[in-house]
Amino acid sequence: MSAEPILSVSGLSVRFSKPRPLAHQLLGHPRQEVRALNGIDLAVARGETLGIVGESGCGKSTLARCLAGLVTPTEGEIRFRGERLADLRGKDRRAYNRRVQLIFQDPYSSLNPRMTVGDMLSEALTVHRMRSGSGVDERIGELFELVRLPQDARDKYPHEFSGGQRQRIAIARALAVEPECLIADELVSALDVSVQAQVVNLMLDLQDRLGLTVLFVAHDLRLVRHVSHRVAVIYLGSVVEIGPSETVFSAPRHPYSQALLAAAPTLEVKEGRKTPALSGELPSPLAIPPGCPFHIRCPYAAERCRREKPALLPHGGGLAACHFAEEIAAGTQPVRKAEPQPA
């Protein structure tokens, strides 16, 4: 992307240390750490939608929460318009929170059950002094129109709404503070399929009208393909491939992206698989394998993958972190024999 990034992340790592019982501390067992994110580098341009995909437990939500300032990174930095998030204090920090909003996955727990929708919105508007006096009421009306909620929603409580409506209330609340960047963490995965499209299209529409930058975190590949300009594939807390949406989806370079796409259900009848399916489970983030984190499950893994962690390098139209990206694309990398699964 040629434009100056609005939000950028470099070397972002998050580790949660697991509490140890006293006995283990006395016996000198090492502290166990969950390595949720391992050196993420990303940059998002203004007005762009960056899709972030990966399996459950790969660190997508942690990344979203880091960007929203809910989780403090262990290493690395987040910059918004060139300013380091970690340096912001007090008023500036609140201003960051106003400009970068997070929409949560579960609209059933992200709305305060004891506040009316009108109270929620007017609180957001008044705390940040977005409007005052009668402007608040006017603006609430506009927000309802924006997210297509009826005006009488104002005096109702969240439990009186359906899941899709609740998610639109959450969007209205985020938009109330006029953010520049929206992070949507599994925006629609808690919703019925029939409502998903509605909410996603609303989001895209709003993005166009308001010029929002969107980070779309999801596990639904079709959805991400539909909404994103660029896509980042995350595996065990690292970006394994990033590139323009069409490139990543039509010609994935990293074997993990290929497997992920091959595993996605489609309506088309296929003549057998071209890519070998993934074997094994996602390794525990407590013990991330050395070398390429994917080598245990990778059908193309070679000796080098066990020793050396591949860097994110340009391949095709985007970047991929694989030693054999070119060979795999050319079809010259030998497929390893499936190891017998231990019973």
């Binding site: 929170n97 997070l102 992200s110 940040h128």
Partner: peptide, 11 residues
């Protein structure tokens, strides 16, 4: 999540 949402809103 609503508590986290309140933090994200800078309250």
């Amino acid at each position: 999540d609503y508590a986290a949402a309140a933090r994200v809103l800078g309250y």
